[in-house]
Nucleic acid binder design. Structure first.
Lengths: 330, 330
DNA sequence: AAAAGATGGCAACAATCAAAGATGTGGCAA
DNA sequence: TTGCCACATCTTTGATTGTTGCCATCTTTT
């Protein structure tokens, strides 16, 4: 593999001249530039990005950390991240946090192989993030609340979304509303649950713990939780699933028992994943502004990178998407 | 940011000793190791991965290049790649080839920022790949045929899949079978089309070009192509969509015109994406062994990295998944 | 005294950048 | 016309980035 040294030698110039010529620094005469470019071409020279990054002490790359690269990730969000990143002439790499301390995500976070990071991976600990973030190494978190210098949060208003979902069920005449939760340590889940509780409270419906069943955001867990709900004899009038995946699992459980949705029970999800529109019945759910969240996250990173001062916290609004999984009993 | 120099100074040892201690090279006495570790801890030292990569001339990272990070990517495939990669103690980063020559994918390919590459991005040119691949920098392509040293291909048997799909329609009594194609420059599409042609031939059905309509693998294009098909008055008995996304678009077009699937027209897709099971009617399609393809790809990279000799070409079998979008008229 | 063990010095790795050095151009006086 | 100097433009030297690993040196043990 040819290095810049080889190019310089072949072009008969000093290494630095070659570097200047190749990088378009204007100190070099056009004739020399041509000579160097010719030499580079002849040798099939490609710069060693690593060496360059080391010297420049920046990589022009930002990382998106996902808890699972193959997961059902919000492609809208990624699109937002991607577009803004490349519009700024930066590169984007996605890496996974599977594997805990040994994961690629953690490694990138610790070893500063990138210029900034966007975190959407619940299995990366707060302390990890706080430790890594510093001046000139901004971190934006999309999945938690975290107060710390150089850490920004972009959040979707999950609490209000939970409220919206619950209120919608109530407005449609439902009183006994079950909540199928996500993992107890999920920030999103907790916010959604808070919204659920506060809607109940506002409409003077007493919260009953028997209507809360734990899931973990997977379709499978939604299925199991729903089975448990059915096993409790007395079915609620409506079920609020903390995300769409679980709602789809629930749909399946109901279908297996011959319980019609929404005739016998109304259900609502959260996220508005692509599938939501296609299941039967189409799922009423809460949409998050995912593209905007992603775009905003990167935007903030660039602002921090250029030392502009920015707010520490952003909250994006949610929206109810009415489809056909809720019956109006009012 | 503390460097290893600072650590060495604080521990009162030479830089090299600190390096040995931190990397677990056994030449160092336990006492010194402890001293160094303590110093590193005190200073919150994190090694600079870039410098390390530069010196070691390897990164222990392999890259997965996708034409679109936010695309409807085969999560099974990514899972296969991911698991094998981390099982070998390597890191995986995904990057996008959007942006052509300036894209992150191309940059990584050219600048050797990783130890190996898996390509699943039709917009990366063959010559780009051939140029980049070399001894100790293996490239595995999943989406094309490409004969070159240090380039391996793992392919799903698209041709046979196309044959299978078409044959299944024929066995179910269909004769006029339309083919909605992917982009003309897609290798996968061409293979599937070849399979379609050869099935027709084998069953003595003459190919009619009016039954071939161009799409580009997007849902939207499937929708449009289907509209065109409908506009042709005479509807075929069955439609073979070159992928599921387009079939889903087609489903929508048929539904809008009140044409019942499969009663009025049978359809079959290709890929077996997650959604296929949920659309109505559930889509009969051809499944690809995606996990296996991904896992095999990485496996091969490691074999090449350890200079084991491997075959240049692998072909994985496809499988018909029967659901309810094809009617039996036989 | 030789072997074994621990530690230190220093040169890579490939690029970039500041500052110093080289070269060339033109003006002006002798 | 020639010689000298100032000045601008181009090129090179050499330091720097953080880490690693070869080799040499210095202890300590047998």
């Amino acid at each position: 593999m040819a290095t810049i040294k080889d190019v310089a030698k072949r072009a008969g110039v000093a290494v630095s001249t070659a570097s200047y010529a190749l990088n378009g620094v204007k100190k070099v005469s056009p004739a020399t530039v041509a000579k160097v470019q010719k030499a580079a071409e002849d040798l099939n020279y490609q710069k060693n990005g690593i060496a360059s990054d080391l010297k420049r002490t920046q990589t022009n790359t930002i990382a998106l950390m996902l808890s699972d690269l193959s997961g059902p990730y919000y492609s809208e969000l990624i699109k937002g991240v991607q577009e803004v990143t490349s519009a700024n002439g930066y590169d984007l790499v996605a890496c996974s946090s599977i594997g805990g301390e040994q994961s690629t995500a953690i490694k990138f976070l610790k070893e500063k192989r990138v210029d900034g990071v966007i975190v959407l991976a619940h299995n990366i600990s707060d302390s990890m993030i706080v430790n890594a973030a510093r001046e000139n190494f901004p971190v934006v978190v999309l999945d938690r609340e975290l107060e710390s210098d150089h850490v920004l949060q972009v959040e979707v208003d999950n609490r209000h979304g939970g409220f919206l979902a619950t209120e919608y069920l109530i407005h449609n005449g439902h009183q006994n509303i079950a909540y199928i939760s996500g993992p107890y340590n999920s920030h999103d889940n907790n916010k959604r649950f808070q919204g659920y509780r506060s809607a109940l409270e506002q409409y003077n419906i007493t919260y009953q713990s028997k209507w809360k069943i734990s899931g973990d955001f997977t379709r499978e867990s939604g299925y199991r939780a729903t089975k448990m709900l059915i096993a409790q004899h007395h079915l609620p009038e409506a079920v609020f699933y903390a995300n769409d995946e679980m709602a789809i699992g629930g749909l399946q459980a109901f279908a297996e028992k011959g319980i019609a949705v929404p005739e016998n029970v109304s259900i609502i999800g959260f996220d508005d994943i692509q599938l939501a529109e296609y299941v039967s019945p189409p799922l009423t759910t809460i949409r998050q502004p995912k593209y905007e969240a992603g775009a905003l996250a990167v935007h903030l990173i660039f602002q921090l990178l250029t030392s502009e001062s920015v707010d520490r916290h952003y909250n994006l609004a949610t929206e109810l998407i009415e489809r056909q999984s809720v019956q109006n009993n009012a």
